[in-house]
Amino acid sequence: MTQVSEIAYKVRSKNAGPFWVTVDIFCGTPEAFARLREGLKTETVAALYHQPTQLLKRFDIADLNVIKFSFPRPVIQGHRSDRDMHGAQWATLLAEMRL
């Protein structure tokens, strides 16, 4: 069992406007990209963020060795129950996910 952060060199997340959040996985090399593209199942990532799979947009970008997931924020940015105004800590869940 290897953590995603041990394969990718950087995982980051951020709001994409107040209504969306986006997670970028910078794999660094074509080998790491291939491994994570196979290893990261969209359903598993959706479950990690408690989201229905069909809401996740996924981009596998070979030119950049990047895998990107975007989904509507379950809580709109700044709503009283929002816990992370910038959505930047959400990346940790994916970084710590074990394959």
Partner: peptide, 16 residues
Amino acid sequence: PHSVSAHMLYENSDPF
């Protein structure tokens, strides 16, 4: 080319 093209990812739900 990498730093410039990667910037389209930033705070964008669709990088293209």
